[in-house]
């Protein structure tokens, strides 16, 4: 299931991240990679507020589509 379909409050493991290499590498350096837990905190103004390693990020819908959850 892609991240953008999960519900606020859900914590799941990341299955894989698609997209170009550069962005994948960047997400990896934030800890957004296979096997990591990710929580969708809320959806605000079209952006997805996520928590990875207890740090909050805002990502847009395209990126939320690129993150596939278990």
């Amino acid at each position: 299931m892609p991240l953008y379909k999960s519900k606020p409050g859900d914590t799941r493991q990341i299955k894989n991240v698609s997209g170009n290499e550069k962005i994948k590498k960047f997400l990896f350096s934030l800890g957004c990679s296979q096997g990591e837990d990710i929580t969708l905190i809320s959806i605000l103004a079209g952006n997805y507020i996520i928590s990875v390693k207890n740090i909050r990020y805002a990502i847009d819908k395209n990126m939320a589509k690129a993150i596939e959850l278990v």
């Binding site: 962005i23 960047f26 997400l27 952006n47 740090i55 909050r56 990020y57 990502i59 847009d60 990126m63």
Partner: peptide, 9 residues
């Protein structure tokens, strides 16, 4: 480019 930004406390 895609939008991603850290939200500090």
């Amino acid at each position: 480019s895609t939008f991603i930004l850290e939200l500090p406390e």
